[in-house]
Write a protein that binds this DNA or RNA. Structure first.
Lengths: 162, 162
DNA sequence: CAGGAATAATTCAACCTTAAATCGTCTTTG
DNA sequence: CAAAGACGATTTAAGGTTGAATTATTCCTG
C-alpha cells in the first residue's frame, strides 16, 4: 500500500510512541505485580477475583470475554484459584455446559482487602500526571485500542467475505 | 476488564487511564502479532532479531538488558531462534562465559524483510492520532514508566496508611 | 425425533516469563 | 597461588498465553 508517506519522520514518531507505551505498561505491570505478590496473587488471578467481586458469579465464557482472554486461559487461572480455595465452580443447573465461578468466603475476604491498596498504588503512580493528562491519556488510548482492533487494513479484495 | 469501583474521583480517573492504557497495549500487541505470524515469528523473537539487526551481535546479558527481560527468558527465546537457524551462538574467546548471539544469513534475510511491514503496521494504527498527540503520548508514557519504576515508595514514616 | 451443528469447558503442545538453583568461568585477595 | 566471590548462562518449577483437538451438552432442523 504505497500511500504518500510523510517519510520516515512519521514512522519514527509512531515507533517512539509505540515503544514508550509498551514500556510504560510493562513497568506499571511489574510495579503492581510486586504489590499483588504480597497476597500471593498474580495479575490475572487478581483480575478474575476483582471481576467476580464487582460483577458477581460468572461463567468462564463471560470471564474470558471480560478479560479478552481465551477460554483455555480462564480454565487455567480458575484452576489455580480453585486449588487455593478462593473460588468455586458450580455446574449450571439449567444448562449443564456452563461452569459458574463463585467467590468463596476466603476469596471474598482476600480480594476485598487486596483491592484498595492496589487501586491506591495505581493512583499513586498516575499522580505524576495531572488530572487532565490522565483523562487525555485514557481518551487517546481508547482511540488507539479501537484502531488496533479494527479490521486488518491490508485486506485484499476477496477476503471481504464477512 | 472494566473496573466497577466507585471511589473518589482521583482514583476513578487513574484506574480508567490505567485500564485503557493496558487495553490499548494489549490490542496493539494482538494486531502486530498477527502480522508477525506470517513470518512464523513471535513478538519476543522479532524483538531479538530486530535488536541484532540494528545493534549487531550482542551477548545474552545485553539482550536481556535491552528488552527488560530475565536472562533465563533470553536463553529460551534464543534457543528457539537458534533451532530455526536464524541466529548463532558464539562462545566468547576472551571471556568464555559470554555467548555472543549473531544473525545468520537466513535470520538477516527474514528480519530485513519483516521489519518494514511491521513498522508500517505500527504507523498505520498510530495514524488515528495526530502527530502532536503521538508525541504527547510518548512524553506522558515516558513519565509514567519512570514513575512506575521509581523506588517502591516504601513505608516512610508518613505514608503508612494502613 | 434423530442426527448433526453449535456451544462451554477441558486438554494438549508450544511458547513466554520469572525466581531460584546450578555450572563454568573469570577475578580478587589473603 | 589458592580459595572465595562475582558473573554469564543454563536448568528447573510454576504460572500465563494461545490455537487446535476433544468431550459433554444443548439446540436445531429435516
Amino acid at each position: 500500500m504505497p500511500t504518500h508517506h510523510k517519510g520516515p519522520e512519521e514512522e519514527r514518531i509512531a515507533l517512539d510512541a509505540f515503544i514508550t507505551l509498551f514500556r510504560a505498561a510493562d513497568s506499571l505491570n511489574r510495579r503492581l505485580s510486586a504489590g499483588l505478590a504480597r497476597a500471593a496473587l498474580t495479575a490475572p488471578q487478581f483480575g478474575v477475583l476483582e471481576t467476580l467481586l464487582h460483577l458477581g458469579p460468572l461463567c468462564q465464557k463471560d470471564l474470558a470475554r471480560k478479560h479478552l482472554r481465551s477460554g483455555a486461559n480462564i480454565t487455567m487461572v480458575v484452576d489455580n484459584l480453585e486449588r487455593r480455595g478462593l473460588v468455586e465452580r458450580v455446574r449450571g443447573e439449567k444448562d449443564r455446559r456452563f461452569m459458574t465461578v463463585h467467590l468463596t468466603p476466603a476469596g471474598r475476604r482476600l480480594i476485598t482487602r487486596t483491592f484498595p491498596p492496589h487501586a491506591r498504588a495505581i493512583t499513586e503512580v498516575f499522580s505524576v500526571l495531572t488530572r487532565e493528562e490522565q483523562i487525555h491519556l485514557a481518551h487517546v488510548c481508547k482511540r488507539l485500542g479501537t484502531a488496533a482492533l479494527g479490521g486488518p487494513k491490508e485486506a485484499s479484495a476477496e477476503d471481504d467475505t464477512r
